[in-house]
Design a protein around this nucleic acid. Structure first.
Lengths: 256, 256
DNA sequence: TCTGGGTTGTAAACACCGTTTACCCGGTCG
DNA sequence: CGACCGGGTAAACGGTGTTTACAACCCAGA
């Protein structure tokens, strides 16, 4: 029952080795150094041979992005699974810390995947990209939080947001439910409050912002202990999450 | 009294035109298209001639980054000066909105300046970079806020932060005071609470995070109305600012 | 006014790049 | 066996950054 012939096996093997060598070059010498000729050289081949596997360098980089996303997704999910449950929201915090640590250890990969324009624009019709697959990691982990199953704990708060914002969040929720469904997590829109959706959005925005600033050294000051700032950010997010995480205007008015 | 000779004049003129053409290529065709030969072609010259003005393409890109920063700084400061003072924190909000609008209209420039690794690493000894000059825009505008002059309104809150965080923020404050001093804004460290410094840091982090996510299309959902999210973010920040903007652990405990 | 030197440009060349074309060789299958 | 085709090569094309040698020009000083 050799569903895969010997040819197919050796082909996918070299295909993976091409990506491995490309990634090594990216990590060691930066994006510009990911050259067809350099990859082929490391493989003992010539550059045109790579065109038997990838239609262009652009497409090779795109596949590389997907591979990086997959690996990162796997890293984060395993770390989140083995997280100590003692801490409040331990899984989510582990996800965030793992993401930061990975980004700092792999700056070139972070830049390619999360801070470039063309990487996300694949062929628009070919289903969910691996990047979407990555973005859903956070959704999956957050879906495991205790608040998530207690739907009566958080009754419909649709009225808490002003009109246009509400519509926007409703669309996000719909999208998020389907995304979770594709991941095997069955959820209904009633279980997911708009506040929770909005909280997730803020969470990702702040996590991404801090990590990118740290990777690119774009803080307004010379930050000597960025981890301290990061932990402070996480504490802030946990506090907002446990307080319900409402909409900003409501929070602002509640202070008057 | 021709302090500058005719030679120097024409030289700096072509130097500026080189940067202009480089920027045009960056805007129209992306970073990869900023080629010495293309620049020279647009100028009616040959590529090696550019080496009379810049030691390498790398250095030319570095100068380009500085020019973009300067222009953006000027844009933001003028917009902030002419901001309608009716709105609460109108100047700061104008700065943020201008930054977002600029980034969306100039994605390639944003990527080069704010989301690449080598752009910030100039020669380490040559004084303040233009990027530092840019980061200080926010400091300058924020320095104009009313809370800034009422030092007795916010007495020393140094005890509000745990030990290591406090030291970190004290260092930021010292750096910020000197930065403001170089900008002509005389301040003392007593006038600047640590909470304010921390607030500025969060402000920049969230602003940067949202804008970068929007420019690079890295939101977890398909965002149809990102401006709504952005305005929500700003409202959130204003609320936190007017509530004092303490440290996260304190804010978290205050909710218990 | 002539002459020299520094400034500014060019042409040629080198090594490298992505990509295409033609060709070749060996495993696979009718 | 013989044809086919997948996977590799060599050669070539145009483009890139960069260096080198050389020419032209401006401008100061004798």
């Amino acid at each position: 029952m050799s569903g895969v012939t010997r040819r197919e096996r050796v082909r996918s093997a070299t295909e993976r080795e091409i990506l491995t060598q490309a990634r090594g070059l990216l990590v060691r010498e930066g994006r510009e150094a990911v050259t067809l000729r350099a990859i082929a050289r490391n493989l003992g081949m010539t550059a045109p041979a790579l065109y038997r596997y990838f239609p262009s360098r652009e497409e090779l980089l795109h596949r590389l992005v997907e591979e990086i996303c997959s690996d990162l997704a796997e890293l984060i999910t395993t770390r989140a699974r083995t997280a100590d449950t003692g801490e409040e929201m331990g899984a989510v915090l582990t996800v965030c810390r793992t993401f930061r640590t990975w980004a700092l250890a792999h700056p070139t990969e972070f830049e390619l995947v999360f801070a470039s324009q063309q990487a996300g624009t694949g062929t628009p019709t070919d289903g969910p990209t691996a990047h979407d697959q990555f973005g859903s990691i956070f959704l999956r982990v957050i879906a495991g939080l205790p608040d998530f199953e207690d739907e009566e704990l958080a009754p419909s708060d649709d009225d808490a947001f002003p009109e246009p914002m509400r519509d926007e969040l409703v669309a996000y929720r719909r999208e998020m439910v389907t995304s979770l469904g594709e991941l095997g997590v069955e959820t209904t829109e009633e279980q997911l409050t708009l506040s929770a959706v909005y909280l997730i959005l803020r969470w990702w925005g702040r996590l991404y912002g801090h990590v990118a600033l740290e990777v690119f050294h774009r803080f307004p000051f010379t930050v000597s202990n960025a981890e301290l700032l990061f932990e402070s950010l996480l504490a802030e997010l946990v506090a907002e999450a446990s307080s319900g995480g409402g909409c900003p205007t409501r929070a602002g008015r509640s202070l008057d």
